[in-house]
Amino acid sequence: MAFLKSLDISASALTAQRMRMDIISQNIANATTTRTAGGEPYRRRIAVMSERPSAFETVFGKALGGGVKVSGIVEDASDFEYKYDPGHPDANEQGYVAMPNVDEVEEIIDMMSASRSFEANVTVLNATKGMAMKALEIGR
């Protein structure tokens, strides 16, 4: 429905930002996880955002954007940090433990970015809603 498309676009962004927030929470929660199912320490995950193409609608031959989506969750391939802790059960022969490649500061910054983007999209959502409600007053 063309009339509510702006709302769909903003809603898709809210979903995507929330997903991003979930991944950031997971990263921070696992900032000290040295064991995962794969055997190695936890690897930082990143949400990859991409534009969602509009399904059918075009405006004068040009496809109009249809919002945003999280197109994939990829693992950060950067190296683990090694911490000297010989008493740790996961320490290697030299006494070093591989720690996850999660940088808390980076995650907090990402978190703020996600929350601000979320707020921006809520603003758009409210503006769209206000316009639609105003249009209902035509002829009154």
Binding site: I9, S12, R20, E51, G65, G66, V68, S117, T128
Partner: peptide
Amino acid sequence: ANNIANVD
């Protein structure tokens, strides 16, 4: 709306 949705 689409521009702001794709800010990231």
